[in-house]
């Protein structure tokens, strides 16, 4: 591939405090601009830890992580302005004092920067994301009043509003019904192409593997076991022995 490397990990290990066994062990991989990579593996394989190590929310203990050519440990705050991150499970207190539109706009706050006000363009991006995800009617609702699926859509809209160059999505369809999953997977694939994003998506339900996915990384016990095209990684043998829950 002639494209530039956007994400590079060299011999990266991550150990949580108080743990002896690393959650990620000696991972080396690189991801080029425009790739749509899905990360699969059984529970506890280190999929979420991989995403959070990459965006610097969890500090790695060994090795080096470079995003857009910059070290995540040194330039974490700057780099996270370029990364759209959707966390796996996200719960909100029912009395939480925030409206849906505020939560979505917050995705852009880092990018807007210090001492600068929210602009008309930011509000336009908010409206556009609400439309893409199909949640315009939720705009003025309190965030704590939403169902799990609606909340997940709001968090996806937040990621889109940010207009990042890199996307980290951790099980983006886990709370969505069949129809929403397919609509949003399609929207994400289109947005990935239009915006030339580099996308990393942790996915559990392989039936919702987006068709734009051109690479699958299979993790097990914190190690990369397979890293290739979806056809080569997701073999019948692997699906039956290692991912029986599909």
């Amino acid at each position: 591939m002639g494209q530039s490397r956007i994400i590079e990990m060299k011999h990266v290990s991550t150990i949580y405090e108080g743990e002896k066994v690393p959650s990620l062990f000696d991972i080396t991989l690189s991801i080029a601009q425009g790739e749509f990579v899905c990360i699969v593996g059984p529970n506890g394989a280190g999929k979420t830890t991989l995403l959070e190590t990459l965006n610097g929310l969890i500090p790695h203990t060994d090795g080096q992580v470079h995003i857009l050519g910059k070290n995540i440990k040194e330039k974490g705050v700057f780099l996270r302005k370029q990364i759209g991150y959707l966390p796996q499970e996200f719960t909100v207190d029912p009395l939480s004092p925030f409206l849906v539109k505020d939560i979505i706009l917050m995705g852009r706050y880092g990018k807007i920067g210090l001492f600068k006000n929210i602009s008309k363009n930011d509000y336009w991006l908010l409206e556009r994301s609400l439309k893409i995800i199909g949640i315009e009617e939720l705009k003025d609702k309190p965030i704590g009043k939403l169902s799990g699926g609606q909340l997940q859509k709001v968090m996806l809209a937040r990621v889109l509003t940010k207009r990042p160059s890199i996307l980290f999505l951790d099980e983006p369809f886990s709370n969505l019904d069949y129809r929403s999953t397919h609509t949003i997977a399609h929207q994400l694939s289109c947005a990935h192409d239009e915006n030339h994003w580099t996308t990393l998506m942790v996915i559990h339900d392989l039936a919702s593997l987006p068709k734009h996915c051109n690479r699958v990384i299979y993790l097990e016990e914190g190690r990369v076991v397979k890293d290739d095209t979806p056809e080569k990684v997701l073999t019948e043998d692997l699906l039956e022995t290692s991912l029986p829950s599909r």
Partner: peptide, 21 residues
């Protein structure tokens, strides 16, 4: 002056960090 930053942190500190604050 720092309303945006406080607003995001009050919602969720980790998500605020992830958004580049």
């Amino acid at each position: 002056l720092f309303f945006k930053e406080f607003h995001a942190i009050m919602f969720d500190r980790k998500m605020a960090e992830a958004s580049g604050i």
